[in-house]
Design a protein around this nucleic acid. Structure first.
Lengths: 203, 203
DNA sequence: TCGACAACTTACTAACTAATAAGTAATCTC
DNA sequence: GAGATTACTTATTAGTTAGTAAGTTGTCGA
């Protein structure tokens, strides 16, 4: 009422993006069944029907949410494609570590996997695809990294990929309870198993 | 209406136990916010008020649920206390592997950690205690196992405990999507990191 | 300046949610 | 066999949920 500025001025697809940002945070904090259209609307100062305007059903919102993460992962992977295996893996861990820093969030794929059978089928399908893509990427990086001599670990890359993925995902969830330092401990241990010494590296 | 038999005949504390069993399954399948009093009641053929009779609030039910798992863990740990470290760890993994076999359930602690901020505070407190207890136990077993020469791994037992716990918890969640064999692959990889050869062992 | 469209709000619904109160029937106790 | 207790059911509530329909307002192109 005071001024007509301050709302949509420059960028057009403002609300839609803010909905996705807010919903992502709520998903990572409370799970898919732990937030509602009302929660999103309240935070953004709009009515819940406005959220329905952009995402007609919660299934649609869920799919958009997961696909947004999927796209980001994919873009990041393409970007990191040329780097040494250790740097790629370091970046992968850093992405998740950042979730922790930005308010004790967990991995979006992880939380949706945990409540997999309680989310709409369309969301399940998107989660499945994302999980498969990330897993395949891990196998690829680990295989190439060992072939080039950068990484030295025993056992099949497939198994190592599951351990790395599960450790990151599980440690994020545990870090909420046992403390963020547990995540760092787990990461350090992973580097040991990968045969990479990581003292003063940053990514 | 047909016959007055067929209901409570022999054992007395029947319903309360059945509620806990059903609620456990629903928790491990759908998460804490993925089931209701109505769901439990429907499965047991009673009214939801009957569930409220035994567990007045969902927070109370949640605490009872977690504490039941906590007690079982504790009893099992006491039971396994004398065994070799590798056998204790093998049993720990087997408990979780059994969740997978009994209908793709995940670790109850894991699913509650994932939606931690969306469950009642009393439940959070119980989950925290359980997670801490299991973690402490893992640290203990790993420390003793390495001291006795049974296990040979690098790095602090604290870090190894987080990796083992997170891998088991995370791999259970992933196994729903990537397949149960991923859990076995992850386990095999863990044994490699622990310096234990596990070809034809069973527990 | 007209009308079409985008981005909402207001107003509503039906279903589900946890929770409570009051009643009932069987059983156990003295 | 009277009274209390246990284990429920019936009935109801207030709040929340996803979802819809019908309006309102601003902007933009012709």
């Amino acid at each position: 009422m005071v001024s007509s500025r301050e709302r949509k001025v420059a960028s057009k697809p403002d609300t839609r993006e803010e909905i996705l940002r807010t919903a992502s945070r709520l998903l990572q904090l409370n799970g898919f069944n732990g937030f509602s259209y009302g929660h999103i609307a309240k935070e953004l100062g709009v009515k819940s029907a406005a959220v329905h305007y952009h995402f007609p059903s919660k299934a649609a919102l869920g799919v958009a949410l997961v696909d947004r993460f999927r796209t980001r992962y994919r873009l990041w992977m393409e970007d990191a494609a040329g780097l040494p295996a250790a740097d790629q893996l370091s970046g992968y861990v850093a992405i998740h570590r950042r979730f922790l820093e930005r308010g004790a969030r967990v991995c979006p794929g992880g939380v949706l996997q945990a409540e997999l059978y309680a989310v709409p089928e369309e969301v399940q399908a998107s989660v499945t695809q994302m999980a498969q893509e990330v897993h395949d990427w891990l196998v690829e990086v680990l295989t190439a990294g060992r072939a080039s001599g950068e990484l030295t670990f025993e056992g099949p890359p497939e198994a190592m990929a599951t351990v790395v993925g599960a450790t990151v995902q599980g440690a994020l969830q545990m870090a909420r309870i046992l403390g963020a330092e547990q995540f760092d401990l787990a990461e350090a241990q992973l580097w040991r198993f990968l045969g990479v010494s990581r003292e003063l590296t940053k990514s």
